[in-house]
């Protein structure tokens, strides 16, 4: 049994098996994302009551908080894949890392955007130089740097390894940046805004938040794996298995059997 598991993991790192395995996962992820989104929107807008302090503006939280979480998790995932890519030279790790990056950047941007629109009615300002806001902005810049470097180097292999190194350097720096910004903010803090005072949450609000988090995870899985498929096809243009994908379905199956 253990050996089976090991073989499957190895299979996953080959572009061809990756493509076919992922093909089966993607539709499920889309369905989960869609259903969770409908559930989250229904609970969040129709069932959850207005907050006694913030009125209705707190409903921004249901997209803001999952977006902020996703932007951080995705950066960690990229760093993990970058490590695998640099140490074990697994090609597919780079495909996964670069496929994750645009989605992570979008979530980082969304956490800033929705945060600004939430901040205006709540604190009276779109932007304050709070530690969390500042480090979110820097996280977005780290994403942009990673993607810019990957795009700037013409040779794909070199681009992947250079960008992986940048992702790792970035992830080492994230805690240093976070603590220094936090520390800077507590020194400079003149405004009376505290973000950490969490209000107690009604059960329905919590349910909506969970549903939206599930939706964001499933969305990320679906969209990132689809992008990884496209990336794989573009990279494996010359490979026989990729060429056979283009054949009409009946001949494809026969060809598959021949080459197993």
């Amino acid at each position: 049994m253990e050996q089976d598991g090991r073989i499957r993991w190895l299979k996953f790192s080959s572009p061809r098996h990756f493509y076919h395995l992922v093909d089966r996962v993607i539709p499920w992820a889309w369905w989960v994302a869609g259903i969770a989104l409908v559930v989250g929107l229904t609970i969040g807008f129709l069932i959850a009551p207005a907050d006694y302090q913030q009125g209705n503006s707190y409903r921004i939280m249901f997209i803001h908080v999952p977006a902020a979480w996703m932007s951080m998790f995705i950066y960690l995932l990229i760093a993990g894949y970058a490590f695998i890519h640099l140490v074990w030279r697994v090609k597919m790790a780079d495909v996964m890392a670069i496929s994750l990056a645009p989605t992570g950047a979008i979530f980082a941007f969304l956490s800033l955007w929705t945060g600004a629109l939430w901040g205006r009615p709540t604190w009276g300002a779109y932007w304050v130089w709070d530690a969390r806001l500042t480090s979110s902005l820097l996280l977005l810049l780290l994403y942009l740097g990673y993607m810019a470097l990957h795009a700037a180097i013409p040779d794909r292999q070199r681009a992947g390894r250079a960008a992986s190194l940048v992702a790792l350097v970035g992830v080492v720096n994230v805690p240093i940046i976070y603590f220094s910004v936090h520390w800077w903010n507590t020194l400079h803090q003149g405004a009376s805004i505290t973000l950490t005072a969490a209000p107690t949450m009604a059960g329905t609000m919590f349910a909506a938040l969970v549903a939206m988090t599930v939706a964001c995870w499933a969305y990320t899985i679906a969209v990132v794996l689809t992008r990884a498929q496209a990336e794989t096809l573009e990279r494996e243009r010359g490979a026989l298995w990729a060429a056979q994908l283009a054949d009409p379905p009946h001949t494809r199956q026969e060809a598959d059997k021949e080459h197993v």
């Binding site: 810049l141 810019a148 470097l149 190194l165 910004v181």
Partner: peptide, 30 residues
Amino acid sequence: IGAGLTAGLRGSGGLVTLLLLPLYVPVLIV
């Protein structure tokens, strides 16, 4: 690190800035 990664790339000035400035924030603050 930035210079090593972008050596030989055309028009790397802006790219180096984008890569390095987030890393420079702690030094700037302290």
